[in-house]
């Protein structure tokens, strides 16, 4: 069971308080109507799904109700970093 640091509450809390919301940094297209069906479909459904580092959004459902990002290794489940919405990850696959 994951132990997750909420950057808003500034505490390590049990996974049960949180809700995983999937891949982070998927921006909603600014002009959806200009998207093709393919582009819209990819925005909606297509995901990186990496084995290794994954940047993902979590929601502190039973806590502060705030969203935040974290970088997690999907193989070892190790959480490498926590960062707020709008920020960029420091730990990335290309940086090793």
């Amino acid at each position: 069971m994951l132990h997750i640091y909420c950057p808003h509450c500034r505490e390590l809390r049990e996974e049960e308080e949180f809700h995983a919301k999937g891949q982070a940094h998927i921006a909603r297209p600014l002009d959806p109507d200009a998207c093709t069906d393919k582009e819209w479909g990819e925005y909606l459904f297509f995901r990186k799904n990496p084995r290794g580092l994954h940047h993902e959004i979590w929601y502190h459902t039973a806590g502060c109700r705030k969203f935040f990002n974290l970088t997690r290794d999907t193989q070892t489940y190790e959480i490498k970093e926590i960062y707020k919405i709008g920020e960029q990850p420091e730990v990335t696959a290309d940086k090793g």
Binding site: E16, A20, G22, N49, R72, Q75
Partner: peptide, 14 residues
């Protein structure tokens, strides 16, 4: 199903 991506062949105790 655990709600997060995971390749570890294990999930959460909860």
């Amino acid at each position: 199903i655990d709600g997060w991506v995971g390749y570890g062949q294990r999930g959460s105790y909860g």
